[in-house]
Structure formats: C-alpha cells, structure tokens
C-alpha cells in the first residue's frame, strides 16, 4: 500500500461536480505534480486533502491510517479534524501571511500555539503520576513544566531560525510581510508550513501570483526540499519545473485524472487528446 492513498474522491458544490472520482497514490519521499487547465479541479483536490473541503465520497489513507471515509456521513469533530490537518502542510497561491506579525513570528506562531496544548498534557501527566506514587511535590511539578516549556520554546525558535536560513531570508527576520516582495512572501509561507513538520507538503500554484523574475527563487526552495526527500504534492503551471522536480505527473481534466505517470512519458509522449491539446496550448503561450 502506498504512503498516501486517495480513492474515488467525489466533490460537488451544489449542482457543479468538481471532482468525479479521483484516485491518487503517493510513496514516501515522492514528489507529485498535478497539472491541468483551470477549472479541472486541481485546487479542490488539494483543499480536500487538507480538510478545507469535505469530499462527498471517497477514502484517504496516510501511512496505513484511515484519515477520511466518505461513507461516514457524520461531520467530524473540530478537534480530530485539526489533528488530521497537521499531517499536511499547505502553501497558498496568494501566500496568506499574517500581516501583523514579523517573518519570525509568522513562522513560530502556530508551533507556539500547539505547544500550549502540549504543556497542558505534560502537566496533567505529571499530576497523575504524582497522585499514584506521591513522588512529586507541587513545586517540583511546576518547575518541571516550566523547564519543559522553556526547552520546547527554544527548540521552536532554533528550528524557525534554521528554516529562515534555508529560505535565505536571514536579513528579513524582523520585517513585516508588507515589506517583502512576492517571492520572499512565498518563501516565508513555505517556511511557515514546514515549521509544523508536516508529513506531506502541498503547494497550490505557488508561483502563479508572482512576477516571472521572482518564480525562480521560490522554485529553488521547493527543489531544495526535494533534495531532502520530502513528500510533496505540487499543483503548478510551470511545465519545465514539473518535469524536472517531480517523480510523477498527474494530468487532470474535468474532475478526473486523465493521465498519470513519470514526467518523461506523460509530457513527451502524451496519449489522451486532452493532454495533447493542453500541452500544445501551454507551449504556444510560452512561444509568444
């Protein structure tokens, strides 16, 4: 069984059917690019994977664990949904950085908020232990909790600094998003998603909102992630990049996976008419 397995995803918004039975599988460390014209359901698929939309039908398993089952009609509790979401990271087309925070705070915010819960659980655990064998006094517990918190906070900080170094924005660490270029914003967004250590990182057209000369720096960061064997799903219009970076290319049209396979075969030897048409329109545009 593959690492991530999506079977038979259906999604409709009112009368409009957007996904009509999508199957997708992905091995650990693999990079999958999803291509296709707009309106083909790429973004919806990505949003379904990230639990931003609920598919009407289908199942999704990650690492052997059933994450979503469309046959269960009851809405999932917010708490479990949140935990499941954390398996995935999502980088948006238009960044959606938090404008009131600096670059560093944008990256550390989510891990710091999660830490609160972790600290609470740790305290509870210590208290239960103290109840059982009376080994810890209240003061000791408080001390251990504060040490635990401090260590974790330091870890978050050093992790974030390492991420900022990786995306090459050390000198912008205290800048606000409005002071950054689009490419820099998107790199921060990638670091922000990585800070939660997701198992799979998803990109929703990460370069579509950028000026052509800025796409390079973002693509470079994504490529460096590929070199670390991260598992990624990339929705993109950058054909050259998709060909270079991905292990597998999925071509979607009208809510179904039209063609799927390794980049060489799919892009240089397309079989379906729709893909041939799509590729020719993309190359024509480039030729202008």
């Amino acid at each position: 069984m593959a690492y991530l397995e999506i079977k038979n995803f259906y999604k409709s918004f009112g009368q409009t059917k957007v996904l009509k039975g999508i199957d997708l599988s992905l091995e650990k460390g693999e990079v999958v690019s999803i291509i296709g014209s707009s309106g083909s359901g790429k973004t919806t698929l990505l949003r379904c994977i990230n639990f931003l939309e609920t598919p009407n039908e289908g199942t999704m398993t990650l690492d052997g664990e059933l994450l979503f089952d469309g046959s269960v009609k009851k809405a999932e509790k917010e708490k479990f949904l949140r935990e499941k979401r954390l398996n995935f990271g999502l980088v948006f087309q238009s960044f959606h950085l938090f404008p009131q925070y600096t670059v560093l705070k944008n990256i550390t915010l989510a891990p710091t908020l999660l830490l609160k819960k972790k600290v609470k659980d740790y305290k509870k655990q210590l208290k239960n232990k103290a109840k059982l064998d009376n080994s810890l006094t209240k003061k000791q517990i408080a001390e251990m909790v504060s040490i635990f918190k401090k260590e974790n906070l330091e870890e978050i900080k050093s992790d974030s600094l390492a991420l900022i170094k990786k995306i090459g924005l050390e000198e912008k660490i205290n800048s606000f998003p409005c002071e950054l270029s689009g490419g820099q914003c998107q790199r921060v967004a990638i670091a922000r998603a990585l800070a939660l250590k997701p198992k799979i990182l998803c990109f929703d057209e990460p370069t579509s909102a950028l000026d052509p000369e800025l796409t390079g720096e973002v693509l470079k960061v994504i490529r460096s992630l590929k070199d670390e064997d991260r598992t990624m799903i990339i929705v993109t219009h950058e054909m050259g990049f998709a060909k270079n970076v991905s292990d597998k290319i999925v071509f979607m049209a009208d809510g179904v996976v039209e063609e799927c396979g390794d980049p060489q075969t799919v892009l240089t030897n397309p079989k379906s008419k729709k893909l041939i048409h799509f590729l020719s329109s993309v190359t024509n545009k480039d030729g202008e």
Partner: peptide, 19 residues
Amino acid sequence: GQYEAGKVLGMTKSQVFFK
C-alpha cells in the same frame, strides 16, 4: 484566506480569531 491559513496550521477557531 487568513482563516484558512490559520486552519491549515492547526489553530483552533478561537485562536484563528484572536491571534
């Protein structure tokens, strides 16, 4: 997008609103 960005980062509804 701001709500969604908060959501995918695992924040609770009240965290998204207040933070």
